[in-house]
Design a binder for these strands. Structure first.
Length: 419
RNA sequence: GGAGGGAUGGUCGAGUGGUUAAUGGCACCGGAUUGUAAAUCCGGCUCCUUCGGGAUACGCAGGUUCAAAUCCUGCUCCCUCCA
């Protein structure tokens, strides 16, 4: 399994996207015979994707870049059911409106990575609610239910885990895998989609679709999964101090997104460059060889490229500039989070702990006090020790701002509200 | 429907009448060290506070007691076995 004929699989292979595939050879032949369609299903449980979804999105990106047609399937219908994979407890039920809102928001995130439209290789958005909502129970059971073996379903990891842990698995959730399999068949029927991709945790679910396609429609379908991307310390990707690393600007500013990548582990740099940037492999090979202090250069490139992809070049440049100012020169930058107060308010002084809470740097005043006591708090880079410290007009520099910090990495600006 | 087991802080998991804002692990936060890395070490981890304290908290609602996460009653949810 060294080289593929199709561009897509070559890219996937060389960048480390491939974990499992149902039939690489036949798939390769198909892909090199002309444009094909593939899809990845996404949940509609949140308003934005986070970096955990990024591998999948990148896979679609490359699929499109190599001349194929990607489909993004929104699980409007299946979200109502809930995927038991990797969940300890039953998911909260979302209302239809909430799901629709989420889908609208998610489309904007996709649009950063994929080109939508009606052209030959333009991406298409579909929602499985379209065909799931009108399913007739009895005909569905008769046509598709007969192809599923409970014996086999019980051996699935997602189901087994729940049973082993003595956690309830509702019939509703148990049906998730059937519906997901049905999605694949339906997409094949409607749009000639022949490939479903996803994370390795979706392997079982995807295979169900492949099998269902064969049994119910004699269709030849393929499954391709990515490895589960974890940090070298073994943690799942996507969580930081303040929660998930969201891909949408509204949920996470570009500067913070940049910082997330900038702060990755040494050991992850090469892998991440391959998966989360579009730099040529040859360039990545070079960067990967950097060691010690020099690896920081590679991290900056990773952060810049990743930010450029997800947001835009300007945001990436700004974020990089701010990071440079703040971390290497000890100054300030435009992209730091900031908050403005009225002049009159500032003349009376505002408590440091109130400012950090307003900015969201601390969750409570108690936490802010603790940080001060432990020496993490600084005003204009001067440590403060008094929990009751206030910021007033005297602290402002000539350009009308005060830099406050709650740790070596978290900085923000206080400004005067312009009338 | 019957019998038994269970629900503790972000999570896992101790605690079975008072010194328990609740042991410990993980996660997380601040510091030291460093390279905005890892590893390590130190400190912290309910909220408010004029730093004296105050207010909430062990599934939910009542009760017993000077005193309850711990005992009693009812309810909700989960698990196991039986039907």
């Amino acid at each position: 399994m060294t080289s593929f004929k199709s561009d897509f699989l070559q890219v996937m292979q060389s960048r480390g996207f491939i974990h499992q595939c149902s039939d690489l050879e036949t798939l390769d032949a198909k892909l090199s015979s002309g444009p094909q369609s593939a899809y990845i299903g996404f949940d509609a449980t949140a308003k934005s994707f986070h970096v955990g979804n990024l591998v999948q999105i990148m896979m679609l990106y490359w699929f499109q870049q190599t001349g194929n047609k990607p489909y993004t399937l929104m699980g409007g219908g299946t979200t109502k059911v809930g995927d038991p994979s990797g969940k300890d407890e039953m998911r909260k039920m979302l209302t239809d409106e909430a799901i629709d809102d989420n889908i609208t928001a998610l489309q904007n995130v996709f649009a950063q990575f994929l080109t939508y439209g009606s052209g030959e290789t333009d991406a298409v958005m579909v929602n499985n609610d379209e065909w799931l909502k009108d399913i007739q129970y009895i005909p569905f059971l008769r046509d598709f239910g007969k192809h599923f073996s409970i014996n086999r379903m019980l051996t699935f990891e997602s189901v087994k885990q729940r049973l082993d842990r003595e956690q309830s698995l509702s019939f509703l959730e148990f049906n998730y895998m059937i519906l997901q399999g049905y999605d694949f068949v339906e997409l094949n029927k409607r749009h000639d989609v022949i490939l479903q991709m996803g994370g390795s945790d979706q392997w079982g679910n995807i295979l169900n679709g492949v099998e269902l396609g064969r049994k119910s429609a004699q269709a030849e379908l393929f499954a391709l999964t990515t490895p589960l991307i974890t940090t070298s310390s073994g943690a799942k990707m996507g969580k930081t101090a303040d929660g998930a690393v969201w891909l949408s600007k509204d949920m996470l500013p570009a500067y913070d997104y940049y910082q997330f990548w900038r702060n990755c582990d040494d050991a992850d740099v090469g892998r991440f460059l391959k998966i989360f940037t579009t730099l040529p492999i040859s360039e990545i090979d070079r960067l990967e060889k950097l060691e010690g202090q020099e690896i920081n250069e590679a991290k900056k490139i990773l952060a810049f490229e990743a930010t450029k992809l997800c947001h835009d070049e300007q945001s990436a440049t700004d974020a990089a500039k701010t990071a440079l100012e703040v971390f290497e020169k000890g100054g300030t930058g435009d992209e730091l989070p900031s908050i403005a107060y009225d002049k009159s308010t500032l003349e009376q002084g505002v408590a440091f702990i109130d400012i950090t809470c307003d900015l969201g740097l601390t969750k409570s005043k108690g936490e802010a006090r603790r940080i001060i006591q432990q020496g993490g708090a600084k005003v204009n880079d001067n440590p403060i020790a008094d929990p009751a410290h206030t910021i007033s007009t005297a602290d402002f520099s000539d350009d009308g701002q005060v830099k406050i910090s709650t740790s070596k990495k978290k900085h923000a600006l206080v400004l005067v509200k312009s009338a």
